[in-house]
């Protein structure tokens, strides 16, 4: 009986969260990208479909569905099909461990706001999944049997491996402070604005941020799909909704990264001030809603930041990218770990 309830609960949460991600992260992300880029370039941006052009992404997806789905003759058909599924699947799965708000108590039952927010190795799970994500891109590049795609795929894997390292090391500082791998725990430690990790970990934050850009293949690190050199990069040979899946995955990834950053450095769902200032009770639904909105807002700001950077900074050269990863970020990340350790030791 119990197990069924738990499964049902998880299923409902999964459906809700999936929709949330796809709608917000992907659809709104695409819309925001187009709008922000337009503003930066003194244009208006999409404004024809729906109010403020909000339905533009849906029109886009509809168009992509209508398009012919081409698979090159020389491609490895199976992997060509699987690749976009891996990419999008991984991008979405990360949300399994993300907590959206504090636990809610209804009657004597405690509901967790997230699919499995309390997973004790939450952050490791995230890191593991994002590393698997690179397979999608590499496979897409390889299976297309096209030199540009292959180069895009190779770049992507090299880039991800390089930045995975500094990203992981940058994290270590946060983990040392929190003393836990569970995301919920990391968040609950940052209950007010002056206890946010970003205050204690400025260097770690910058390193993590930069690495996130690289991990999500966003400008200035979007070398896997560098148009001037690689046509379309790993997705050159994709069309229709398969291309659409890569496209959505990019935005889903962006949202995921933003969420992780928020969780690790900006107090996650925690309000910036003590909850009782609002007069809301611990565990009440109202508080959960407030926290949820707060969390979403923080993510939205970070997504905006991602977009803002994309339309400001030009793309790195490949050697610069590698230099930055190995010669700058990695030593700095190590330094950060050392400093944190020293700090914690001194404060004890």
């Amino acid at each position: 009986m119990d197990i069924i309830w738990i499964l049902l609960e998880a299923l409902i949460k999964a459906v809700v969260i999936l929709n949330l991600i796809l709608l917000f992260a992907a659809a709104l992300g695409v819309w925001a990208e187009r709008k922000v880029s337009a503003w930066i370039q003194n244009r208006i941006g999409p404004n024809r479909v729906g109010p403020f052009g909000l339905l533009q992404p849906f029109a886009d997806v509809f168009k992509l569905f209508m398009k012919e789905d081409l698979i090159p003759k020389a491609a490895d058909k199976t992997f060509h099909r699987i690749a976009p599924i891996i990419t999008l699947g991984i991008a979405i799965s990360v949300y399994a461990v993300i907590p959206f708000a504090d636990d809610v108590k209804i009657g004597d039952k405690i509901y967790q706001m997230g699919i499995a927010p309390d997973l004790n190795i939450g952050i490791l799970f995230v890191l593991a999944l994002t590393s698997v994500g690179v397979y999608g891109i590499t496979l897409a590049g390889w299976s297309s049997n096209n030199k540009y795609s292959l180069l895009g795929g190779l770049r992507s894997s090299a880039q991800m491996i390089s930045y995975e390292l500094s990203m992981g090391l940058a994290l270590v500082g946060v983990l040392m402070i929190a003393g836990s791998l569970s995301l919920n725990e990391i968040v609950s430690k940052q209950d007010v604005i002056w206890r946010w990790n970003v205050i204690f970990q400025p260097l770690g934050f910058i390193l993590f941020l930069v690495s996130s850009f690289a991990e999500t293949n966003r400008t200035p690190f979007d070398l896997p799909e560098a148009e001037p050199e690689l046509v379309g990069g790993y997705n050159t040979e994709y069309s229709g909704m398969k291309f659409g899946m890569f496209f959505l995955a990019e935005y889903a990834n962006m949202a995921t990264s933003s969420a992780i950053i928020v969780l690790l450095y900006f107090g996650g769902w925690q309000l910036p001030f003590p909850a009782d200032w609002l007069g809301l009770q611990q565990g009440s639904i109202a508080l959960a809603v407030a926290q949820f909105i707060n969390f979403m807002l923080k993510i939205a700001i970070l997504v905006f930041f991602f977009i803002w950077v994309r339309w400001t900074v030009p793309r790195f050269r490949y050697d610069q990218l590698m230099n930055l990863g190995w010669k700058v970020l990695l030593p700095l990340a190590l330094l950060n770990v050392l400093l944190t350790a020293v700090g914690i030791w001194l404060l004890k």
Binding site: V36, A38, W39, I40, Q41, N42, R43, I44
Partner: peptide, 8 residues
Amino acid sequence: QMFKPKFT
């Protein structure tokens, strides 16, 4: 730039 007048 975002708040400058638009040319569209």
